[in-house]
Simulated scan of single mutants.
Amino acid sequence: MKLPLRNLILLVLMLAASSMGIALKPTKKIADQGPKVELETLIPKAFGEWRQDIVSVTQAVDPQQKEMLDKIYNQTLSRTYVNAQGYRIMLSVAYGGDQSDAMQVHKPEVCYPAQGFILHGKQAGTLQVRGGSLPITRVSTSLGNRNEPVTYWITIGDRVIKTGGIEKKLVEMSYGLAGKVPDGMLIRVSSLDPDTVSAYPIHDRFSSQLLEAIAPEARWRLAGKPGNE
């Protein structure tokens, strides 16, 4: 059976990189270059139609136990936002300064079922933002009578990547061949909504307004740099 061309290219690149061994082992962490990431100040507490809801009892899902999070990520941030109509959005951002194989971001389609949620579906999508679009992933989950649609995207270095393993590995390898260790983020937006279909456009509106509210010089942290799609 023939391998798909992209898989074959990835296999060849991985074998080539492996044969080079320690000589090309990346050593320069992108996280150590430039201003440090501070999620608490990077993510605004109010923007567009949204304000942080400090009295909400909505419980956001943690991808793993806290001790595991501390091993994987340098920083995590979880907030609930509400608009004038009373619609609530849960935002979770996890930042890791080293996105090597030992410190990979954890995807909702893995961590939600690990906590007992039923995964009803997963699909790729795009988020329209100023200057282009971002690849995102939609995940539909439920736990008892809690229906939680999820939208998320992942950054590796200065790029927003598709969540498929091939694209992710190719980006990581491009950094590795340049001697760099990329940092990365997982940005997760979710809501408690029985109508999954209508929830996703609200997620998109929230996400677009969030990115628009972040200072241009820092926006690339969450949205990648132009030309790196």
Rank of each mutant, 00 (worst) to 15 (best):
L5Q: 13
G97L: 02
Q128F: 14
P201G: 00
G184N: 01
A31F: 13
L42Y: 02
Y152Q: 01
A114Q: 12
L91K: 00
A114T: 07
F47M: 06
A16K: 03
T151I: 00
T163P: 02
D101N: 04
K66D: 12
G132E: 04
C111I: 13
L222F: 11
K36V: 09
I118K: 15
E109I: 13
I166R: 07
L11I: 11
R6G: 02
N83E: 08
L42P: 02
R159H: 09
K2V: 07
D193L: 12
S19Q: 10
Y87E: 06
N83L: 07
G179F: 07
D195C: 06
D183G: 04
Y175S: 01
G132S: 13
N7F: 10
A60C: 06
M173P: 02
I89V: 15
V160I: 12
P4E: 01
K107T: 11
V110S: 11
S100I: 09
E40V: 15
L77A: 10
G121L: 07
P182M: 09
I161L: 03
A199P: 00
Q33F: 08
E217R: 15
L3D: 13
M14R: 14
N83Y: 10
G97W: 01
G227W: 04
S142D: 10
I166S: 08
L186I: 15
E167N: 08
R138V: 01
I187Y: 00
P26L: 02
P194Q: 05
L91G: 01
V105C: 04
A124D: 13
R159T: 08
D53L: 05
V57F: 06
Y112D: 04
A31S: 13
V110G: 06
G131K: 08
L24Q: 05
I154A: 04
G227T: 07
A94Y: 08
L134I: 08
I22C: 07
F206C: 05
E229H: 09
M103R: 12
M90G: 02
I54S: 11
N228R: 10
A17S: 13
R221M: 12
G86Y: 06
R79A: 10
Q52T: 12
R188Y: 05
